[in-house]
Design a protein around this nucleic acid. Structure first.
Lengths: 216, 216
DNA sequence: CCTACCGATCGGTAGG
DNA sequence: CCTACCGATCGGTAGG
């Protein structure tokens, strides 16, 4: 009979993922070596490889763990609040909170996705799409006409832009906190969506380009 | 007597910077080798080193070239339009245009700044600060009370977040164009700033923490 | 302006 | 036989 994993295995692994996330967030996935991850976590390199298959796996585990929690968070919020305005406000507040609690993981997710490959990349992107869709659907309920204008997806991405970009300029040791910024983002977005008038697509139907146009 | 530079030197160098910017934008500064840059530009590696001192220099030249053009653009806009609302609208439109025309350089500037070092980094950051200050000053003219609330800098960064994030999700070959998005960003931001009510700082004056608080 | 190299360090794995 | 873990070193490749 196998002895099974040590009781400390899962905790140790979580500690390694957190330590690696911090290094990746600060210096980027490619510029951090496995020996640096190992040292930062107080383990030898071979022991690090006992917890993760390889460097790619480490990145996937960090990204997937974080994005899975985000998916859970939007599902819970949708289940518990059906009124669109209240739901979107709650989503924004919870997202900013979740990001603040997992700053390093979130930074890795936004800056190092391009290094993901294969099945891991597919899973992470699928989760991201679910999160974006949940926001876009709620915005569509708030502004039904935005859908016909092709606006609710772009509006969603502008909202994500405000939130995601915060983590490049807001320093955690600073006076300005993530909690203080959440209502500012909310007010700016709610105040703004009513004012957006420009349709983003001039045409609804897209012509097939003629061979001449394609070559030009 | 030195022969002096070939008449094609500057053009060749610009072509190299553009080729390198494309590779860096797509795969990140660290993951692109100098031999890859050379091949993409149709030169040998030693010849590449004839145009740039080293890899760091290549990054600095790309970032500084782009950010210098942005500084010029805000200076011109300030000089030619004094009315705050029209000025900010013009700034947003011209920025989105400038970014679209220098997509790769802008991507490098936002994702690879962390690899800059020394004097080059200082120069790039100084230029960035001038650009941010120009936007923040214009927003302060539009909403004077935001200054007292400590809001105009955060509002500026939310605006930059919307614009900068666009370049992570808007694909140039897609139906949705940067030009179509500029008015959407403008309307959302102008509609929203009037609605922001939350002061971001609870206190104006910051107490010195007592030793007890510092240790806790 | 090329081929040919260097010191160093990378991610990953061997034996024990 | 398993796990947990070490010192040492592998084949390749990076920037220069």
């Amino acid at each position: 009979m196998p002895r099974g994993r040590a009781p400390t295995y899962d905790a140790q692994r979580e500690a390694i993922l957190a330590g690696a996330a911090k290094l990746f967030a600060e210096r980027g996935y490619s510029d951090v070596s496995m020996i640096e991850v190992a040292r930062a976590c107080g383990v030898s390199k071979p022991l690090l490889y006992h917890y993760v298959r390889d460097k790619d796996d480490l990145l996937v585990l960090i990204c997937e763990g974080h994005v899975s929690r985000l998916v859970e968070l939007v599902r819970e919020t949708i289940a518990e609040e059906s009124e669109p305005q209240a739901r979107l406000k709650l989503m924004i507040r919870r997202f900013v909170e979740a990001y603040a609690e997992a700053r390093h993981e979130h930074r890795v997710l936004t800056q190092d996705v391009k290094f993901l490959t294969g099945a891991g990349k597919a899973r992470v992107l699928a989760h991201e799409r679910e999160v974006v869709a949940a926001f876009a659907d709620t915005i569509a309920l708030l502004r039904p006409e935005a859908g016909a204008e092709g606006l609710h997806k772009p509006l969603t991405m502008l909202l994500f832009g405000m939130i995601n970009w915060m983590f490049t300029w807001l320093k955690p040791e600073g006076e300005l906190t993530y909690e203080a910024m959440a209502p500012v983002v909310t007010e700016l977005f709610f105040g703004g969506i009513g004012a957006v008038r420009s349709p983003v697509t001039a045409k609804k139907t897209r012509r097939k380009p003629t061979p001449k146009e394609t070559l030009a």
